[in-house]
Design a protein around this nucleic acid. Sequence first.
DNA 1: ACCTGAACACCGTTCAAGT
DNA 2: ACCTGAACACCGTTCAAGT
Lengths: 250, 250
Amino acid sequence: MAAKRASQPRKSVWLTPRPARGRRAAESGSGAGNLDREKIVATAVRLLDAEGDAQFSMRLLAAELNVTPMSVYWYVANKDDLMELALDAVAGEIDLPDLTAGRPWQSDLRALAAAWRRTMVAHPWAIRSYGEYLNIGPQSMRFSACAQTVVARSPLPEQERPAALSAVFQYVYGFTSMESRWLEYGRESGRTADEFLEEVAGSVAEAPGIEAGGGMMERHSGVSIGELRDRDFDRALDWLLAGMCAGLTA
Amino acid sequence: MAAKRASQPRKSVWLTPRPARGRRAAESGSGAGNLDREKIVATAVRLLDAEGDAQFSMRLLAAELNVTPMSVYWYVANKDDLMELALDAVAGEIDLPDLTAGRPWQSDLRALAAAWRRTMVAHPWAIRSYGEYLNIGPQSMRFSACAQTVVARSPLPEQERPAALSAVFQYVYGFTSMESRWLEYGRESGRTADEFLEEVAGSVAEAPGIEAGGGMMERHSGVSIGELRDRDFDRALDWLLAGMCAGLTA
DNA sequence: ACCTGAACACCGTTCAAGT
DNA sequence: ACCTGAACACCGTTCAAGT
């Protein structure tokens, strides 16, 4: 996607909200065959999950909905808008931690990071879209608001908090991008992710330096790649949080 | 790109090296009009920089080279291969620090991160491709080897080093993805990146939480957005490095 | 108000053919 | 050995027209 050149560049759905049409049919509670934006977005998410974003198209979506391709355009202005809507929909699936449970802010932040990662890995196309769009839909904002509440409870001085949030979530974004790409490679190649990793590592072993795939291909001694990944994920968060707190006492 | 579904899934150029054809013309030193893989890749990089990856196509490339679209396919198997070659070419532009200068390993690691970021921001399409492909070409490996040499000099225990490298570079990847996307938004919208950020921040300010764009839109008091970004980038690396080293004494 | 059909301006890539 | 031309199977999206 990524907005072909146009005289007027595209603006996010959230910045120029299109009327969510098709409400009449939805509200009148008529037959299941009717379209509305919600149904379109839900179907898009399902197809994106099943087919991947490379395979997904407006035409495929329309076929799945048993309508002509152009019918969809009554409800969404274009494919980019639809992708933003789909992305916000999956952002709504992220489990937010219960902030009233009285856990330490670090635990809540970790829970948030883990929940984000889980959701993105469940929808591999979503992490790519996340890098493409503005992510300011209601569900994304719900997540951001929660994250901000969490750091607001930390002892970090107020002017440090945005940087702390960026650091954590930019890391999580980077980690998750790599992770879901490796999982996709595994799926595409028909082998397991572990086997694919072995193969690449093998083809590359003669070179002086490795680290391909963000250094995920070393030290498997009994423990599975998945566990190693989880461990690395937690470890980096340990380091970041330790670094932030170390700054406080200095 | 991202490999349309095929019976045999695509393999990286680097895993199944295609013969770099067209060497005859290149070696015989004949006229400038002749094609070879090097010239094709260089032109692709130039076009990707100038037009963006959304605008770039095999047909556009062929036109720029004054040949028929299909001529290019004599030298590269497909567009994905070409993108991998282009990506490795820009990886060759990354300035590696001089490791014989006797600087502390943290400085070298920071220099490496900064050089990577600089190159990726200079070629905004490259960061997207980086997330898409395997990045195991010779120039990528040169970079990885250097990074591994740097951490090998750190006091980190050997089994921690891959995780440390991943943590740093996954963060840098995440940061740089967001950064170049914001810069693109600015360019696309015709305004400066700062103005665009203001606009989005404005449209979003009524919501309870902000942090859109990775929390880059707060606290500008005199200092430019660019400086703030640089500061946040360094800050997160401070935290990561501090966290790693803190673990050593414990 | 909602949906269709035909068309436009693109893609990447195939295949058989030219020189 | 290298390059072309025509064609295939797609895209997203326009526009005017139907109900």
